[in-house]
């Protein structure tokens, strides 16, 4: 993932991390991906609260939920916890 590595003269001292983790896409870990049935979903955001990876997104402008598959690791918590059973895990 790290194509441009800094040399020892450029890196900050004391082991300070200088790249945001969002540069590292964990989405390729998954074998199952969540698919949402928009008809059933009532946007309660419970999937958002239970996602370990912050991969469930909320867009306040269009007031809708989305999945950021760049980071989703496919654990399936959202599908199990959805009170409306609106999320299904399918093979990629």
């Amino acid at each position: 993932m790290t194509s441009e590595q800094k040399g020892w003269k450029e890196i900050p001292i004391a082991g300070v991390c200088w790249r945001p983790a969002t540069d590292y896409l964990t989405g390729d870990w998954k074998t199952l991906k969540p698919v949402r049935d928009k008809e059933k979903c009532n946007k309660c955001l419970i999937c958002y609260m239970f996602c370990p990876d912050g991969a469930v997104t909320w867009d306040p402008e269009i007031e809708d939920i989305g999945f950021n598959l760049d980071y989703c690791k496919g654990c399936g918590i959202c599908a199990v916890e959805c009170p409306k059973k609106a999320i299904e895990m399918v093979h990629e």
Binding site: L45, D53, G54, K73
Partner: peptide, 18 residues
């Protein structure tokens, strides 16, 4: 809560379902 910025950002390497 959903509109609050994420402090622990995505891309951390915890196992799936952590």
């Amino acid at each position: 809560l959903a509109e609050k910025p994420e402090i622990l950002m995505s891309g951390h390497r915890a196992c799936a379902g952590c």
